[in-house]
């Protein structure tokens, strides 16, 4: 088997994640789909690392994880505060630029 299959898998997961972002309305699920996309990207980076025989890809994936962690913290905090003000976690309910 060629490791390129990991890339195919990564592309597939990324696409599914992207579709999920657009399809789902619950902000938390949307957010999970974003995480899925990030993970798919990480898989591609790790595979690249292996294919090129150096660790730079893994380093980037590592940074991606760190940034994703930070993003999750901020994103979820935003979701919570939006929920507090609108009593809804639906991204469609936040369609106006006012409360």
């Amino acid at each position: 088997m060629n490791p390129v299959n990991y890339l195919y898998l990564s592309a597939l997961l990324f696409t599914i994640g992207a579709a999920g972002v657009v399809i789902r309305r619950n902000a938390i699920v949307v957010f999970m789909c974003v995480e899925l996309m990030l993970n798919a990207g990480n898989l591609a980076l790790v595979t690249f690392s292996r294919m090129h025989g150096n660790l730079d890809g893994q380093i980037v994936a590592f940074f991606t994880m760190v940034v994703a962690a930070a993003e999750v913290v901020v994103g979820l905090a935003i979701i919570v505060s939006v929920y507090r003000s609108r009593h809804s976690a639906s991204v469609d309910d936040a369609a106006l630029m006012k409360l």
């Binding site: 992207a18 972002v21 657009v22 399809i23 309305r25 949307v30 991204v91 469609d92 936040a94 369609a95 106006l96 630029m97």
Partner: peptide, 13 residues
């Protein structure tokens, strides 16, 4: 411009 973030996301997609 319907205000729905998901619509914009589809555009980006």
């Amino acid at each position: 411009q319907n205000g729905y973030a998901r619509s914009y996301a589809v555009s980006m997609f």
